[in-house]
């Protein structure tokens, strides 16, 4: 471990890998469990895009807040939401992050600065402007990150928020996770100006495109943006070009994709493989180090699934609780 040319400590390198591996295994396992019919409702998997969430979240602490999307599991895990509670939530159990009342699309943990996955596309952008505004009033140097896809980038909320953040110089980073598909509709078809960086230019904020499958590219670009925002340098936009390994939701036959697209991406653009190869080639860690993490994560996910399946369902009275703080 003596030779580490990366701008992260050896511990952080391993932490980043563990996060990405946890997201991958969590999603791959949900894919399998969903097919069995045990999981209610809609599930949108993040597999493939792990480097994006992780490369960004490595720069954040609990004081920093994120607003996530319908495809939010990866953001949750990278922001430190408990994996057991997440799994239980997705199974609709009382032990879930939201006591079974939110489900996959609404996992939140405000104590971790995770302001919620969101079933409404583009809805997180205004909320994160508010989070950033709160940080400014409190003077806590917190930064807000809002994630949205190439599809939600066309929501008025996102554009309004970009203007608000730029006008008020808020510490907000707008992260476009561009996986090429708005559900099933291609970026080329649905977006008049396909470059999301151009949107940033329109609001006078810097925009940067990176290979979202390359952890180190995301990490470095996000690091500069976040540090700049934290110091009062204002908002910025980061476009991460990523590949979604699964469909829009589980059960999506993905016939709108090119033949062999998923196989190609898994073979050539897998962010976990790219990360592992690069770190091993540099001699900063060994294959064995990674294999150990793989084993640990596999057992964590196993345990999470087992405990989620065994956990109690919410009691009937929970139907009526927590609508208001007091009413």
């Amino acid at each position: 471990m003596s030779n580490n040319p990366f701008p992260l400590s050896s511990e952080d390198l391993m932490r980043a890998y563990r996060t990405m591996r946890t997201i991958r295994d969590f999603e791959e396992r949900l894919h399998v469990e969903f097919a069995k019919g045990d999981i209610p409702g809609f599930v949108h998997l993040y597999a493939g895009e792990e480097a994006c969430a992780t490369g960004i979240m490595m720069h954040l602490t609990d004081i920093d807040r994120i607003a996530s999307t319908h495809r939010g599991h990866g953001h949750c895990i990278a922001k430190g939401v408990d994996v057991h509670e997440m799994m239980a939530e997705i199974y609709g159990k009382a032990t879930g992050s939201c006591r079974g009342k939110g489900g996959s699309m609404h996992i939140a943990d405000l104590s971790k600065g995770m302001m919620g996955a969101n079933g409404i596309l583009g809805a997180g952008a205004p909320l994160i402007c508010g989070a950033a505004l709160a940080s400014r009033f409190r003077g806590d140097r917190g930064v807000g990150i809002t994630f949205f896809g190439d599809g939600a980038a066309n929501q008025g909320t996102v554009l309004e928020s970009m203007n608000l953040a730029a006008a008020w110089n808020l510490p907000v980073i707008f992260v476009v996770e561009n996986n090429g598909y708005a559900e099933s509709t291609s970026v080329e078809y649905a977006t008049a100006v396909d470059s999301y960086v151009d949107r940033a230019s329109g609001f006078g904020m810097p925009g940067v495109t990176v290979d979202g499958m390359d952890f180190f590219a995301v990490h470095e670009a996000a690091g500069e943006m976040i540090a700049r925002a934290r110091d009062g340098g204002g908002p910025a936009l980061l476009e991460c070009n990523v590949a979604r390994f699964f469909g829009h939701f589980e059960g999506d036959a993905q016939t709108y994709k090119a033949k062999g697209e998923n196989d190609y991406n898994r073979e050539n653009r897998d962010c976990l493989k790219i990360f592992r190869d690069r770190v091993c080639d540099a001699g900063a860690a060994t294959r064995h180090d990674f294999a150990l993490i793989d084993l640990e994560v596999a057992s964590l996910i196993d345990a999470a699934v087992i405990s989620a399946k065994n956990a109690a369902l919410p009691q009937a009275r929970e139907l009526l609780t927590d609508v208001y703080v007091a009413y």
């Binding site: 405000l110 302001m115 508010g130 928020s161 203007n163 608000l164």
Partner: peptide, 24 residues
């Protein structure tokens, strides 16, 4: 502590809600 906003109701009403969820 009073902020005039752009004419963007979604953005600033949403920002007020986000700030409320963060303790303001």
């Amino acid at each position: 502590r009073l902020l005039d906003t752009p004419l963007s109701e979604s953005a600033y009403i949403g920002a007020a809600i986000g700030a409320a969820a963060c303790g303001m």
